[in-house]
């Protein structure tokens, strides 16, 4: 069960318009995930140096060290707990953390989207998933 807390709720709260801006970011996360799924991680190269999002970059470095599952979730939860970000910036970090866990777990693109889209709000997630389903059916 989720222990909702007023401080966490205030930290994560943002407007519907702000949530809309998550979609391009989710696209970026899905692109990175797809590339890593196909090519793998080259631990010897500085593969993630071009990733400007420091939270996401650090998460990918942890994945490259073979971390996944409970331990990775524990570290990401600590990073979110101490995060100074608020509102949409904090929500982006939550989405990034979810994507990192999903990449470590080897989830396919469809599963990743199902995990990330709900962060845009239920209506937006349903619309995006339905659109994806229609495109798939075509």
């Amino acid at each position: 069960m989720i222990y909702w807390n007023a401080d966490l709720a205030a930290k994560i709260s943002c407007s519907r318009q702000e949530m809309e801006t998550l979609l391009p970011y989710i696209d970026h996360l899905v692109d990175v995930s797809r590339t890593l799924h196909q090519t793998g991680i080259q631990p010897s190269a500085d593969q993630f140096s071009s990733e400007k999002d420091i939270f996401f970059r650090y998460g990918l470095l942890l994945v490259s060290e073979g971390l996944a599952g409970d331990i990775l979730e524990e570290i990401l939860a600590v990073l979110l707990y101490v995060s100074e970000e608020k509102g949409i910036a904090f929500l982006r970090q939550c989405v990034a953390a979810e994507a990192i866990l999903s990449i470590a777990n080897g989830d396919d693109q469809d599963t990743l989207l199902r995990k990330l889209l709900p962060y845009c709000g239920v209506d937006r997630a349903l619309a995006a998933l339905a659109k994806g389903k229609t495109e798939h059916a075509d």
Binding site: Y3, D7, L76, A77, Y81, C94
Partner: peptide, 21 residues
């Protein structure tokens, strides 16, 4: 679940305060 774990940390320890510089 990540948010569940985070919620649990907030419930146990409250907000972390300003992150250390």
């Amino acid at each position: 679940m990540l948010i569940e774990r985070l919620g649990h940390m907030y419930a146990l320890w409250g907000p972390s305060g300003k992150a250390p510089e």
